[in-house]
Design a protein around this nucleic acid. Structure first.
Lengths: 202, 202
DNA sequence: CCTACCGATCGGTAGG
DNA sequence: CCTACCGATCGGTAGG
């Protein structure tokens, strides 16, 4: 956290540090946090075990760095912020498509959330949430503004039902780990989006 | 699965075995699988470390027994099967209320799912799924039969959107671990159910 | 004096 | 069902 206090401004060894974080991320996804050893990380990163402790005070500190580097919130929020539409319906369709694309391209985002919940009781997620809450409220505001035929639901319900789409959509892959056929999947997603739109529009 | 084949009919020490499973379950929920040691389990269960291996061949086998004892699928399926309603709308409301009640009373069900996904790549869930799949199809069939004004969605979409409700509903608690105020929660659930019903009914 | 990193090993604990 | 203990490996740190 608080590095050198004054003088001596050396940019820190970012090369192998980045490599360690990247390798740790991959191993944590496959084996979980406690199932991954510092020796495995050192070996895969091509550095000595002792070197890990030059970059991170301990294993927990390393996980914090991994979580910061692969924090799912900013990525998902960006997908929402980049979504446009001439009305609520188009905005929802665009945003849903972007969310699915991101989650399909980056299954690691959800897995990291699960790891934090299982092995850290969600403490990193909790700490990261305040930074994205305003962006979520902003998306809810846009859902309302883009159209006038929205049913009188709360922001909370609109957002949760929207995110529920992706939990529902990714459920099979997450829980069953199956490589479901993508054509059938896309069709199901279309249906889920229709159910949501039917649900929130008058 | 297949216990003693013949002769030697010893009923197995079910007393402490049950105690070990119960204690393990609690510790796994708090610390995850790899974060929990066999010595912790022995100590909390009031048995010697070596005794654990009299009941279970290894730590993985103990987890399998825990998963079998606390398998979330049958419990959730039972909540659906016990739900009745004179039409689709009433069936959905009843089933949603039951699901929420079960998940609120048993947060361990979801946590165990997460543990399996993070630390076993979902293998126990995968193995348990075929046994519940027929029951899920049955619920989808009932959703259709109880009413005629259902939109032409696939069983898959109907079921996923329904379960998405509870992912969406439990999101905050799971991800933020927060004890959200239950009055506001109930109100949000009402809204989520309305969105679903609006979505699937003509 | 700093950084990045080494070979070797610390005190304890893992599953068995 | 317990005591005692194993080969190995754990997370973390020593001096250089």
């Amino acid at each position: 956290m608080n590095d050198r206090s004054e003088a001596s401004a050396r940019p820190a060894p970012t090369r192998s540090r980045a490599q360690i974080i990247s390798v740790s991320h991959g191993l944590f996804l496959m084996q979980g946090f406690h199932g991954t050893t510092m020796r495995q990380i050192a070996k895969h990163a091509g550095v000595a075990l002792g070197s890990l402790y030059n970059h991170f005070t301990d294993k927990d500190d390393l996980f914090s760095a991994v979580f910061e580097a692969y924090n799912p919130y900013p990525t998902l929020l960006l997908a929402l912020e980049n979504s446009r539409g001439k009305d609520t319906e188009e905005l929802v369709r665009t945003a849903a498509r972007r969310m699915v694309n991101v989650l399909a391209a980056r299954p690691d985002l959800v897995k990291l959330v699960f790891i934090d919940v299982v092995e850290f009781q969600g403490e990193h997620l909790r700490k990261a949430y305040p930074a994205v809450a305003p962006g979520l409220q902003d998306f809810a505001r846009r859902l309302r503004k883009e159209s006038g035929n929205l049913q009188p639901f709360s922001d909370d319900a609109l957002l949760r039902a929207f995110f529920g789409l992706f939990y529902a959509f990714n459920m099979n892959e997450m829980l069953l780990g199956a490589p479901v056929d993508s054509d059938g999947q896309t069709a199901v997603l279309q249906e889920l989006i229709e159910i949501y739109l039917n649900g929130i529009l008058a």
